[in-house]
Design a protein around this nucleic acid. Structure first.
Lengths: 220, 220
DNA sequence: GAGATACGCTACGACCTGTAGCGAATAGAG
DNA sequence: CTCTATTCGCTACAGGTCGTAGCGTATCTC
């Protein structure tokens, strides 16, 4: 989701976004625009954000925005999606710790004021636009799930999880666990408005990995 | 969240919204406007919705909208919040069944096309507006949690849950369970875009009430 | 019937979107 | 160094939307 080449000739191949003939686009302007967009989004929300305001904040002309993004919608998508580029997986010694680490990163991301209105508005648009939903899955959801799957691979390498056990079933379970935790973190931050602190995160992972919440292990 | 009295004199007391002196406001117009708003929301999303369009769909003048709601924002909030008035608790014989019932109602609500963009956009606005967030908690979140608490009271009456056990702790656990399931349902419907069918719901409640997902009860 | 209010209609100013045209600036190619 | 292509900032613009104001008419209470 780098600034897309907006001129009429669409190369269709990702490697060379725009041919280097004339004056190159200012990378500083790219960054300034995306930063200004996130800033304005945090202050004004999706509805209050205007292209003219973003241009003023970024110190560029409004036409410079439209050379890079065809509409406000696309600009906001890129500004929000770029937040998720920082997510990383670190081998912290156990499957549980790896999951906790990714969840904590996600919680930190959602704790930023610019993420909240932006991400929700992005999801709202995605609910009407299948193509946008696909981009959301590719750039936001899948990277997170990929991190957990990498963590699972580490766990198998450590012998923590039996490799002979039905691997796809375990992968599906990881998917469900991640959906659950991501949803819970989102709900807590975006709907309730309270931060998902480490204690809260630990409690959830206890619940999901070890035991039921209400009465321990009633079925055991 | 009934249509608020917009005239200058704000009674500040809920029971009598507007004094009955002149011609009363058309209740049919109220319903037509809210219905038209939800319809337009489903088709066009928050950003594409226009007051003029809603007025045309509802068959009323645009000024009639502004006599009831001060802005588009408030109108949409009311239109969305009214969806949650239908949520009910039924004593289905077990705590688990009661929870499953509420969750299924919530999932059905989120499955409606008009709910998705509307609810997310509502949450997005709430992330910037503490007063709106409070209204969301009062009219959407708390009613759901209240249902689960009522279900818990039924469970205690049935002897399913020990009343001597730390009641507040159990209530907190119920809160967390509900947050988790609500978040997961929201994530599945609003972010991923796939329905939370009964099988999926059952799987989640198994996870939350009975046993961990990955390896049964490893700590038992 | 008198008074008060809602209704539909039209018109309006302010704002935002996205586009077009201009001259100046900045890169590579010959 | 010159030529060419592209970007940049600036100004202006048409189109659409928001929310308000004014008017005559309709409908309710006293």
């Amino acid at each position: 989701m780098a600034p897309t080449p907006q001129p009429a000739t669409q190369p269709a191949t990702p490697p060379a976004p725009h041919r280097a003939k004339g004056r190159p686009r200012s990378a500083a302007a790219d960054r300034a625009i995306l930063d200004a967009t996130r800033e304005a989004l945090a202050e004004l929300g999706w509805g209050g954000l205007t292209m003219g305001d973003v241009a003023v904040r970024a110190g560029v002309a409004k036409t410079t925005l439209y050379r890079r993004w065809p509409s406000k919608n696309e600009l906001v998508v890129d500004a929000v999606a770029s937040l998720f580029d920082e997510l990383e997986i670190a081998d912290r010694g156990s499957l549980r710790a790896d999951i906790a680490d990714v969840v904590a990163q996600f919680a930190d991301l959602l704790a930023r004021p610019e993420s909240q209105a932006a991400l929700l508005a992005l999801f709202a648009e995605g609910s009407r636009d299948p193509q946008l939903r696909r981009r959301i899955r590719e750039h936001i959801v899948d990277p997170q799930k990929r991190l957990v799957h990498e963590g699972l691979a580490h766990a198998v390498a450590r012998g923590e999880v039996p490799a002979d056990g039905d691997a796809t079933a375990i992968a599906e379970q990881i998917d469900i666990i991640f959906d659950t935790i991501a949803g819970a973190v989102e709900h807590r931050m975006l709907v309730i408005g309270e931060p998902a602190d480490p204690v809260w995160i630990n409690r959830f992972i206890d619940l999901l990995l070890n035991q039921g919440l209400v009465s321990g292990c009633p079925g055991c």
